[in-house]
Design a binder for these strands. Structure first.
Lengths: 212, 212
DNA sequence: TGTTGTGAATCTCTTCACAGCT
DNA sequence: AGCTGTGAAGAGATTCACAACA
C-alpha cells in the first residue's frame, strides 16, 4: 500500500519524529515533516495516509501516535539481525555507523577472509572467518546482509549469502549483482553517485542538444 | 535530453564498456549491456539513443564508438577536482575508493577539524585543517564536494562549501540538507538504505491491508 | 531469425486544486 | 485563516509492440 520509495521516506519521517519527541514536541504539521525529510507537504500527507495515520486540521499530527503508527507499519523490520561481509575501511565505517545510529538493527557478526582480522572485536562487533558465514546466518536466522567486500568478490559472496538464507542486501560493491528478483537489493555505489554529481555540477552547464 | 536517473545508468554503461574494451571486445548488444547494468535492453537502447549513439541490427553497438560517445556526453564531468570533508572511518573509505577506482576525479584535499589528522597524507590524499577549506576550493576552482562529517556538522559544513563555490555534493551524513535547488545533492544515507532493505526482507512478508 | 529504433500504451510517482473541518 | 484529505490532472519513466533492417 506504500511505494518502495515511500518506505524510504517513512524511515526519514521516523527519524525526524524521534528528534521532535525527544525535544518534548506534541504535534507536528505536514509542512514541518516535509522540510525535515526533504519533500513536499502533500507527499507527507499522502505517505502518512497510506499507512493509516490521520491528523487534525487544527493541530496537525500527534507525534506519539504517528511514531507508533510508523513503528507498527515497519513492524519487525526494524528489529532484525544483520551480517556484514568485508571488514575493510568501508566495512568498519558501516559497522561504526550502525552501532551508533541504528541500535535496533543488530549486526550479529562481521566476516572477513583475512585471518588477522577475525577473532577480534571491531567497532563492537565480533569478526569471524568467512568460512563460518553460512553457519551463523542459518543458526541466527539472519535475513539482512551488508556487502562491503571488494568488487571481484561481490557476486560470489552475494550468492553465498543468498544460499544461506539472506533475503535483502545492501551492496556497497560497484557491481550489479545478478540475483533472483525476490531478493531485495539496495545498491550504494559511491562511484556512480560521485560521477552523477560531477555531471550535474560540471562547469560547462550548457545544454547539449542533438548530439555533440 | 537524458533523465537524472539516466545519467547514473550511463556511468554504469561506461564502466561495463571499459571492461569489455579491455578484454578486447569490439561490439556489444543492448542485452549484454542491460545485464551488466541491471536494467532492460529497451532501456539501454533508449538511453544510448538519447545521447546520440546508434548501433546496427547486425552487430549491435561498436564499443569504441560508444565509449567515445559517452565520454563526449559526460564531457568535463569526469575530469574534475573534488574535496572531501570529514576524515573519519567513512571519509577514509571514500578516499581509498576514489583513489583506486575513480582516478580521473582528483581529490585535491581532505579536510578535518582534528589537528592530529591534518598535515598528513591519508590514502594518498593530503589532509588539511578545515579552516583552509574556503581558500583551497576557491583557488583550485573545485565544484564537487563529498560530505563525510558527523550529522551535527553536516548542514553548517554544506553551507560553507556552497559559499566557497561548490556546485554539487555527495552527502553521506544522515541529514536532509537545506540548500538552494540549483546545487545538486546526492544523498548516500546508509541508515535509510539499511532500514529499507530490512523492511523488504522482513520475516513477516504478509501484506498489511487497511491499517493494522 | 535476431536486433535496433520508436510510437503508443502503461505504470508510477508527484503535484494541483479544492472541499471540508476547526 | 490555515491545515488536512483526496479526486483529478500532470509528468516521467518504463515497458509493449512492431516496423525496418541485415
Amino acid at each position: 500500500m506504500l511505494s518502495e520509495k515511500g518506505v524510504g521516506r517513512v524511515t526519514v519521517y521516523r527519524r525526524a519524529l524521534a528528534v521532535l519527541a525527544d525535544a518534548g514536541g506534541r504535534e507536528v504539521h505536514s509542512r514541518e515533516l516535509a522540510a525535515a525529510a526533504g519533500t513536499s507537504a502533500v507527499q507527507v500527507r499522502r505517505d502518512l495516509l497510506a499507512l493509516g495515520a490521520t491528523g487534525s486540521a487544527r493541530h496537525g499530527y500527534d507525534i506519539a501516535t504517528l511514531l507508533d503508527g510508523i513503528e507498527r507499519f515497519l513492524g519487525t523490520a526494524l528489529d532484525q539481525k544483520v551480517v556484514l561481509v568485508g571488514v575493510g575501511n568501508l566495512g568498519r565505517a558501516v559497522l561504526a555507523h550502525c552501532a551508533s545510529r541504528l541500535p535496533r538493527l543488530r549486526i550479529v557478526a562481521a566476516f572477513d577472509e583475512d585471518d588477522w582480522k577475525t577473532g577480534r572485536v571491531i567497532k563492537g562487533c565480533r569478526c569471524l572467518p568467512a568460512g563460518e558465514l553460512e553457519d551463523v546466518i542459518a543458526r541466527e536466522g539472519v535475513r539482512v546482509g551488508i556487502l562491503t567486500v571488494p568488487a571481484p568478490a561481490a557476486q560470489e559472496t552475494a550468492e553465498r549469502l543468498l544460499r544461506a538464507g539472506i533475503r535483502g542486501l545492501v551492496n556497497f560493491a560497484p557491481v550489479r549483482l545478478r540475483i533472483p528478483p525476490d531478493v531485495f537489493v539496495q545498491d550504494m555505489d559511491m562511484g556512480v553517485a560521485l560521477e552523477r554529481v560531477a555531471y550535474f555540477a560540471r562547469p560547462d552547464d550548457g545544454r547539449r542538444d542533438i548530439a555533440g
